[in-house]
Amino acid sequence: MTEPLLLTPGPTPIQPDAQAALHKPMLGHMDPQVFELNARIQRNLRRMYGAAEGAFTALAAGTGSLGMEAGFANLLEPGDEIVVCTNGEFGERMAEMSERYGARVTRIYAEPGRAVDLEEVRAALASEPKLVAVVHGETSTGVINPAPEIARAAFGRTLVTVDAVTTAGMMEFCMDEWGVDYAYTGSQKCLSAPPGVAPIAVSARALEAVRARKTPVSLWYCDFEGMQAYWDRRQYHHTVPVQLHYALDAALQAALDEGLEARARRTITLNAAVAEALLPLGFSHFVENPRDRLPTVLALRLPAGLEDAPLRAALRERGISITGGLGATAGKIWRLGLMGEAARPEHYRRLFRELAVLLGARDLEERFEARLAGCALSH
Rank of each mutant, 00 (worst) to 15 (best):
M1F: 08
V197C: 11
R104D: 02
S192M: 04
V210F: 10
A201R: 01
V160W: 00
L358C: 09
R291N: 07
A356V: 05
G360E: 06
F368V: 09
S140C: 11
A250G: 11
M227C: 13
E69Y: 00
N87T: 05
A356T: 06
H136Y: 13
A126S: 06
G113I: 01
E69P: 01
L294F: 08
V297D: 00
S321P: 04
S378W: 13
E53P: 11
T296N: 05
N38R: 15
F224I: 15
G28V: 09
F286K: 02
P280F: 06
V197A: 13
D232C: 15
L278R: 00
M48L: 15
G67S: 07
A154Y: 00
H379T: 10
A273V: 11
V242L: 09
A204T: 12
A209V: 03
Y348F: 15
R234T: 15
R318C: 06
A229H: 05
A126P: 04
E172W: 03
A313H: 09
A204C: 10
L279S: 05
E354D: 14
L7N: 04
L37F: 11
W231Y: 15
A183M: 03
C85F: 03
Y49C: 06
R107Q: 13
P4M: 07
R266K: 14
L311W: 10
E92A: 10
G340H: 01
V240F: 10
M48C: 13
V165M: 09
V287K: 02
M170H: 11
E276A: 15
G337D: 06
H379N: 12
L191C: 09
P148N: 05
L252Q: 03
L281P: 10
A126H: 00
P310Q: 10
V121T: 03
L300I: 12
